[in-house]
Structure formats: structure tokens, C-alpha cells
Design a protein around this nucleic acid. Structure first.
Lengths: 300, 300
DNA sequence: AAATAATGTTGCACTAAATGCAACATATAC
DNA sequence: GTATATGTTGCATTTAGTGCAACATTATTT
């Protein structure tokens, strides 16, 4: 059943006359008449009685009429929902994030985004760089936030910003008083907390160890950033991370960041990625743009 | 929302790929693709995510999908009802009948018609010829059964049959032994039960009175045929009616019919009428044809 | 009773829209 | 890398819908 036919049928039933509808729609009566007969032949039943004054639906017509009215009501509800989606008042974005981005995202990107688009919901899977990239490749997540992602055919980089790794330490600890920029030698002498392999950060640390032929002192190896953060804050040791990861602690004064005299660490980089070739939902694109502008990780 | 677009969208969601649908529908992928984009631009939201392997509905797509599925279910129910109507398994016919036709209609036409088309319902207004004609003119009734209807521009005669008026009397009464055909003089001497004015029968009786300059003995004037029938059956008098009106009583032997020697009464005629220019519902036409064939009133 | 205005319908030429074909861009599989 | 999937775009073609005019029928007016 063609929509054009049924809608004109509806109008004709409302107006009670073919010509009236033709005038209202600024079309020829023949057009309306033909549509009606087309609908009737399609269904195979006479829908309208042609009477003295105009037309009147037959029993079949009444049946169809009731159906169409109900359908119209449902359609109205549907369009309302679409309106909500169009205005981004509803929608969903799934994110895959490296653990270091969580606080930055939740603190700087999501609140302001939710203020503009209150109805949008999120799923957020956090994991290592590898996991994030997999989620992107498998279309599990729309957007991925990773540190030091290696170039990948399947992943398109929507944004990337240099984020040099810094030395993070408890301000009252002895390591906080090291002369900056901190040399690789000094670093090697400190008890270090590092993320376990699988993360882009771990790979970078191993790279530096190889280049400078040093063995860093892995006092703690953890797959959770919270663990490392607490380790540092309690003064049990130091770590090497981009400053934005512990922006809150730095602001609080519970952790200080010192520059490192290691060019490789300076080449640290954060990326916002999506699967190449995938046309992202509009909400996702909006969020991506918003994240670039609002997140500390993407501020040069 | 064009039906062609939504239905292809539905198919694409089912199949999960544009090409699969194109093959299934024996059409070009470009056609399918274009329909989808047309639907998306019409609604103003992206409905499908183009993914590695085929496509997958977005949130808006899921929304539309749910709507369309529900709509499809309702449409299925609707088509079932249409099927019923098409096969005449449902429908409605409104009849306007002269009182004399009731028993004939109910006994000879409706039972066999209902056997073929069980689901058809009827409304039946009985009244004088005048009332029946009005109902036909005002489109209150599809079909009208009248006696001696005068020619009317607005009424089209679907069938007409000569039904000479006869003398009806109780078989044990003295009037039943009158020599047939009964003359107008003999009739004038009998106590007569007649339908009151407004009926075609009443008009005919008055016409005969004028022509032959006789005053019939109106022992009973009633607007109800049942009254007259009982009057005759009880032997209180006679009446002048077409035999088919009391076919049951004649069969029972409770009433006998005698021919009348009055040419004007022989010109009695029954008609099946409908409004001229009105295209009757198919069920009504079917019933009309059936009535012509099965009713005693239309047997020559 | 005839004329006028209104109803829906049909034939024909025309315009607009949908379609098919081909080439393309991209991603997956071997 | 080559080959086979996926969806998309440009252009010529065909299809389908539309407007105009004349028509048949009915209602209203003169």
C-alpha cells in the first residue's frame, strides 16, 4: 500500500469530496480520482461509495480509515522520537578509552556535553591501547581514546596531540626535588610504578629502556591506573605519565609533575580514533569534536 | 514516509546487507542504496550504519524498525479483514422492504444467501412504499423491495415481476367458495382488510374503486400486514394481496388464494429498486441477484 | 422545463521520478 | 597482492505520475 495513495484516501474521507481535496492540494481532481481507484484496485475492494454529494467510505473504507488513523497516531509518536534524536536530545555513543583518559573525559568533556545534549547516553569500556583498538576495529565502540597508538590501516585518527610524559611524584618526597629536566639516569634510580604491557605507555617505556640501555626500577607494575596514582600519591615512588592523567592531583597539590630530559618521552601522543571507512552517527561526531576542544588531553 | 522506502528499509534490516536485498528483489544495489538515503534525508536522521559486513540500523533505525514491525502486524490484521470482505465473508447490506416482502425475503432469500456468505450482516427497515423509496433516495438503504412503485427518476429498477393481486380468504369461510375469478361486485360485498395509505397496494385499491365506481367494504384498515393476515386467517374477512405475501399460510392451508376478475389488480407488480446512479457495494449486488432468483415475489 | 453549476471519470500529451547500467571507492579473504 | 565482497555516484533510459481537456451524471437554480 503506497503511502501517497492512503494519505489522499484519508484526506478524501475527511473532506468528503474528491474535488475539495484536489483544490486543497492544488491538484487536479483526476489525480485524486486515479489515486483512489489505484488504491481500490490494489486492495481489490471498493473503498468509497460515489454518492450524490461527494463520496462516502464503504465498510472496507471505514476499516482502512480506522487502520490509517491508528497508524497516523503511532507515526506522530515516532516523529516525536525522531525529533528528539535529531536535536540530539536522545542518542547513544559507545566509547573505548585508555584508562588515563577516564578522569579527563568525565571531568572536562562529558559534563559540558551533557549540558548541551542532556538525553545522550554512553557506554564506556576502559582498557589498554590494544583493547581500545580492537573495540574500534570491531565496531564495538564509536570512538576510542588511546595513548601512543601505532598507525593502523583500520583506524582513522580524528585528532592527535603531543602529550609528553612527565615525572610524577609526591610533592613532599625526595624525588620532587630532583633538578629538572630529569635525566634518564636519575629516573633509573627511582622506584617506578608502570602500567603493564598492552598499553601504549608500557611500549614506550620499554622502547626507552632499549634505546638508553637502562633497566628502570619497576617497583610496581599494575594494569590499573588507580593503583599507580595511589602509589605515587602516598610517596612510595614515582611514575612516568602525561600530566593530564593526574590533572586533578596536580591541581590539588598531591602530585607534582616534572619535565623529563628524554626526547622519546617527549614524543608521547594521545589520539582520538575511529574505524576508518565507518560513517559515524552524528552524535558521535559531535562528541568527538567536543572532546577535542574540551579535554585537557587534546590541549597543546 | 513513502511505503516503498520503508519496506525496503525493513528488508535491508532483515537481510543485513543492501546487496542481498537487491538480489532478492532482482534490482540494482544502487536502487536500494538510493531508497535508503532518500528515506534518511526525508526523515533527517541516519538510519543505518554502513559497516564492514553489510549494514546495521542506528538507534533511529531501530526506532523506525520497531514502528514498522508493529505497523506490519496491524496491516496483516487489516488484510485479513479485507480478505474476509473480498470473499464476502463479511459485509453489510441495508434493506428497505415493503412489509409484504418480509417473510418471502427471510424465508427464501436470506437463508440460502447466508449459507454462501455467512458473515454478511443486514439492517432491514420495513415500511410503506413511500418510506422505502425515501430510504433508497436518501441512500439509507442499498436495496428496496416495493409493490407497485411508481416510476421515479431517482430509483433504478433492478428487477420487476408481475404479481397479480388475489383474493385471500380463510378456506373454511363462505368467501372461499366464491366462483373464480372473483368479480369486483362480489369483492365489494365482502368485508375487506386493507393496508392503509402510503403503500402501493392502498393506491392500487383506491384506483380500482375510482375506475369501477365501487365502494369497497373496508372492514379493517391497518398499517401492519400481520394484522391483516391474522384477520383473514381467523375468518373475519378477506383481503386483496399478491399470493406470495401469504405463501406460508397458503402452504399450510390456513389461507386460500382465488384469482380476481379485475384487470387492474392483475397489473400488480413488485420491484427491486436501488438509487439510480449509485454504484452499489458488491455484496449488495450479489444479494440483489440472489433475491431475484430465490424470492417467490420475483418468480413469474 | 431548461439552464447552470457541481460531482467524479476517462483519453492523451507531457513532465518528473525512479530505475538500470557502468564505473568507482572501500574493505575482506586467500 | 589479487580477487571478491561491500555500498556509492553519474548518466541515459524507462517508468510512473500529472495536468489539461472533454465527458457523463447529478443537483440546483432560473
Amino acid at each position: 500500500m503506497d503511502d501517497k495513495l492512503t494519505s489522499t484516501f484519508l484526506r478524501v474521507c475527511q473532506e468528503g469530496s474528491i474535488r475539495a481535496v484536489a483544490i486543497a492540494l492544488e491538484q487536479e481532481p483526476s489525480t485524486i480520482s486515479r489515486r483512489l481507484t489505484a488504491l481500490e484496485t490494489e486492495i481489490g475492494i471498493q473503498l468509497l461509495e460515489r454518492r450524490k454529494k461527494g463520496v462516502k467510505p464503504t465498510e472496507a473504507g471505514e476499516l482502512l480509515l480506522r487502520h490509517l488513523r491508528g497508524q497516523a497516531a503511532e507515526f506522530e509518536a515516532l516523529t516525536a522520537e525522531f525529533d528528539a534524536l535529531r536535536g540530539m536530545r536522545r542518542g547513544h555513543v559507545s566509547l573505548a578509552v585508555g584508562e588515563g583518559f577516564i578522569s579527563d573525559l568525565i571531568k572536562n568533556a562529558l559534563p559540558s556535553f551533557k549540558k548541551v545534549y542532556p538525553g545522550i547516553t554512553f557506554t564506556m569500556r576502559s582498557g589498554s591501547t590494544e583493547v581500545v583498538v580492537q573495540d574500534i576495529q570491531n565496531d564495538v565502540a564509536h570512538l576510542g581514546f588511546v595513548f601512543n597508538s601505532m598507525p593502523d590501516r583500520q583506524c582513522k585518527v580524528l585528532a592527535h596531540t603531543a602529550q609528553p610524559l612527565q615525572l610524577l611524584a609526591n610533592p613532599t618526597s625526595e624525588w620532587a626535588r630532583t633538578v629538572a629536566p630529569v635525566s634518564i639516569g636519575s629516573l633509573a634510580a627511582m622506584p617506578l610504578a608502570l602500567l603493564s604491557s598492552g598499553s601504549g605507555l608500557g611500549a614506550m617505556v620499554r622502547e626507552v629502556e632499549t634505546i638508553y640501555s637502562v633497566r628502570l626500577h619497576r617497583a610496581l607494575e599494575a594494569n590499573s591506573l588507580a593503583t599507580i596514582r595511589n602509589f605515587v600519591r602516598e610517596g612510595l615512588g614515582v611514575t612516568v605519565l602525561p600530566a593530564f592523567v593526574v590533572a586533578q592531583e596536580i591541581a590539588d597539590g598531591t602530585i607534582v609533575d616534572l619535565p623529563l630530559d628524554v626526547p622519546e618521552f617527549a614524543r608521547g601522543e594521545v589520539s582520538l580514533i575511529a574505524r576508518s571507512g565507518r560513517r559515524l552517527p552524528e552524535v558521535a561526531m559531535k562528541l568527538a569534536n567536543h572532546a577535542m576542544r574540551s579535554m585537557r588531553a587534546f590541549q597543546a
